[in-house]
């Protein structure tokens, strides 16, 4: 009796383990790794919703090659080992011919390594650190413009409009923040601006006033910050409290572009420009419909992370339709030739 019950339990667990592998004929099941719990869950959730919106639209128009798209989300918890587990599972157990998704750079790197070794194309959706595609990976593609572009966009604006002489750069301690700040410092120096303070902070810090009072004493023309949402809001709020007046507060994409920023920073967020990759007002085809739909469903405008996810699925659709067959090699060829305009942009 006892042995029997153990067998039952084991069988149950095994069936749970394998249940993902059953594939019906007329559906195309795609699994996406995303951080749905932990500190990055916010972005994971936003991307998840955006994928769902895209999938619904695609299905309404007949799916990919006549097959209905069924999405399945795997929680990577923002841990590289787990992202890798998921990638191995997708390649090996589910035989998925193409992988896309995940949020943080470290997770994307873990997946990229596996995908390249196993010769399965991987589309990096939001891992923004630059070195990921500069590694001669043959099977890794990205749709997210490298981090350096954030800085370039702003620089051209600064050159033409503000003409500052001095700049202060603050960035968060992550690979995204570090590489963003490095690029900005490089460009600023090229333009003849003097970098007065170049400093990083621990993500999630409560009090920025010590560092800000130092910034205030330096009297810069421009303050450039590479931060995520709430750090950005706190920074702006405390800048206002300290009455720092620079000509311009510039944000490097990530946090300053999120819709919450405006709500949370309250009246502090005036005179702020950001280099963002995308906003609901851009004129790419489909951008507005997507933003409205998202807003209607979740009472909130998405940021570019969502738009990227939304577009990623369209890219995958496009690639799969052009690929000669559903095997990884053909998909890679098709992906390499990809050039399309989505709601996110070209």
């Amino acid at each position: 009796m006892r042995r029997f019950s153990i067998i039952v339990v084991v069988a149950f667990l095994l069936s749970l383990f394998c249940s993902g592998t059953l594939l019906a004929q007329d559906t195309l099941k795609l699994s996406i790794p995303l951080p749905l719990t932990g500190t990055q869950a916010k972005f994971g959730e936003m991307e998840k919703r955006s994928y769902e919106i895209a999938a619904e639209e695609i299905n309404a128009k007949g799916g990919i090659k006549g097959k209905k798209v069924v999405l399945d989300f795997e929680d990577s918890q923002g841990k590289p080992e787990i992202s890798r587990s998921i990638a191995e599972k997708l390649i090996d157990v589910k035989k998925q011919p193409v992988i896309f998704g995940d949020y943080s750079s470290s997770c994307s790197k873990a997946i990229a390594a596996v995908a390249d070794e196993r010769k399965v194309p991987y589309l990096v959706v939001t891992g923004a650190a630059d070195d990921i595609t500069q590694q001669n990976y043959k099977y890794v593609f990205r749709m997210n413009p490298p981090n350096a572009l954030y800085a370039i966009g702003l620089i051209s604006f600064l050159k033409e409009v503000v003409k500052p002489k001095t700049i202060v750069i603050l960035y968060e301690s992550s690979d995204f923040g570090t590489s963003g700040a490095k690029d900005m410092a490089m460009h600023a120096e090229k333009m003849g601006m003097k970098v007065l303070v170049y400093e990083k902070y621990e993500k999630g810090a409560v009090d920025f006033k010590p560092i800000l009072s130092k910034v205030k004493a330096a009297k810069p023309d421009v303050i450039y910050m590479v931060s995520y949402v709430m750090d950005a809001a706190l920074l702006m709020r405390q800048i206002k409290e300290l009455r720092i007046d620079s000509k311009l507060f510039a944000g490097g994409a990530a946090g300053f572009a999120l819709p919450e920023f405006v709500v949370n920073a309250k009246d502090a967020s005036e005179y702020v420009v950001t280099a963002t990759l995308w906003s609901p007002q851009v004129k790419y085809k489909g951008a507005k419909e997507y933003a409205d739909k998202y807003k209607k469903l979740f009472k909130d405008y998405p940021s570019y992370h969502g738009a990227e996810a939304y577009s990623a699925l369209y890219i995958i659709k496009d690639v799969l339709e052009r690929a000669k067959s559903l095997n990884p090699e053909d998909i890679r060829v098709a992906m390499k030739a990809t050039k399309m305009e989505t709601a996110f942009g070209p």
């Binding site: 719990t37 959730e45 709020r237 409290e241 009455r243 709500v263 949370n264 309250k266 009246d267 502090a268």
Partner: peptide, 25 residues
């Protein structure tokens, strides 16, 4: 923390009180 994620989603929230940036100088 997981229950909070399930019930309240993982959105960042703050209370938009109107004295948020008020200060004495």
């Amino acid at each position: 923390s997981n229950l909070a994620t399930i019930f309240f989603t993982s959105d960042y929230r703050s209370t938009p009180v109107d004295y948020a940036t008020k200060a004495w100088y």
